[in-house]
């Protein structure tokens, strides 16, 4: 077990290094930070001087190792755009993103599983057909269209919910600012959470439906029916339980992408999370923020994958590397 985890950890570190290297090379092609930093009046000499001060004239590998060295110590430098320390910026924006991701995963899981089970049990009903058609919309419509559509219906026309921002936030312990404790905060999260959850929800729903229909055809379900067990016990006690294994895996992996790809939802709703921070930074080539953000996202994926791998190892003996006998 220990050897397995150490091996996986080693791989994770390697992945992080590769991500750092690729993103670092990529930044050379997204633009020139100096061009966004200087004013219209700056002379060529002023620009050259700033370039030198930022260390942009050093060879790429030197810049890369300097970046890595600082990153290991949690130092990501100063944002070119907002002039504040990058690690502080990301930490202050993280609660907004995590609360949004958490809410939308809860919505996606609850509705996804309920609707999935319903459509699997009643495959021929009108309601199921309607839900399936609706789920197609959820999978195929781009997020920003859904977001703008919701804003126009619920904020502009009906004026029920706010169109942007996070509402009033409350500080918890000085470092976590939550919107869950105020009315305006709760009202503000509804539209972005629905927008962000729609894709995951329809995905989970379709997955549950397919798995469930598969399971319902299995012999042990037929046997349970023959044994005269109640419908409820069969559907939820036996069928759903066996359906959930792949659902948990997918949800775990999707959690990473909900955090990483909240970018569009955050931009449309002016949600003050790390995604909108990243978008604003790209526009002005704020390299320190971009680098730190990509490292952070890579870290999220690596950690989630590591946990999933370890869970598999615990759940399924067949996956144990080198056979079960040597596992400790």
């Amino acid at each position: 077990m220990l050897a397995f985890i150490i091996k996986r950890l080693g791989q994770s570190v390697l992945v992080m290094l590769v991500v750092a290297l690729i993103s670092f090379i990529m930044f050379r092609y997204v633009g020139d930070p100096v061009a966004s930093l200087v004013s219209q009046e700056a002379t060529m000499a002023d620009q050259a001087q700033l370039r030198e001060r930022l260390g942009l004239n050093d060879p790429v590998h030197e810049q890369f190792f300097r970046f890595l060295g600082n990153a290991v110590q949690g130092q990501f430098g100063i944002s070119y755009r907002l002039q504040t320390p990058v690690s502080e910026l990301i930490l202050s924006r993280l609660p907004a993103t995590l609360e949004l991701a958490f809410t939308s995963v809860v919505i996606a899981l609850t509705l996804g599983i309920l609707l999935g089970v319903f459509t699997a049990l009643n495959p021929k009903s009108w309601a199921s057909a309607g839900i399936m058609a609706f789920s197609l919309v959820g999978v195929s419509l781009p997020t920003f269209l859904i977001g703008i559509g919701l804003i126009y219906i619920f904020a502009v026309e009906l004026q029920w919910l706010p169109s942007f921002g996070r509402g009033q936030v409350v500080s918890l312990g000085g470092w976590w600012r939550t919107g869950f404790l105020t009315e305006s905060g709760l009202r503000s999260i509804i539209l972005p959470a629905i927008t962000l959850s729609l894709f995951q929800m329809t995905l989970i729903m379709r997955l549950v439906r397919a798995e469930m229909m598969e399971v319902l055809r299995q012999d042990y379900i037929k046997f349970a029916r023959a044994r005269g067990l109640s419908k409820r016990a069969i559907n939820f006690g036996h069928a759903l339980k066996n359906t959930l294994v792949p659902v948990i895996t997918i949800t775990g992996l999707q959690l990473g992408s909900v955090i990483a790809f909240a970018i569009i939802t955050e931009t449309v709703f002016q949600w003050p999370g790390v995604g909108s921070l990243f978008v604003n930074s790209v526009a002005v080539v704020d390299v320190p923020v971009m680098a730190a953000y990509l490292m952070f996202i890579a870290f999220v994926f690596v950690v989630i994958n590591l946990i999933v791998d370890i869970l598999y190892y615990i759940v399924d003996p067949r996956l144990r590397v080198g056979g079960s006998a040597r596992g400790t």
């Binding site: 904020a155 169109s163 942007f164 449309v268 002016q270």
Partner: peptide
């Protein structure tokens, strides 16, 4: 003062009276 980056959202915020 609230920055709203997205054009459509900024206009919607004015239309909805926010």
């Amino acid at each position: 003062y609230t920055p709203i980056a997205d054009n459509a959202t900024r206009v919607a915020a004015l239309l909805s009276g926010e």
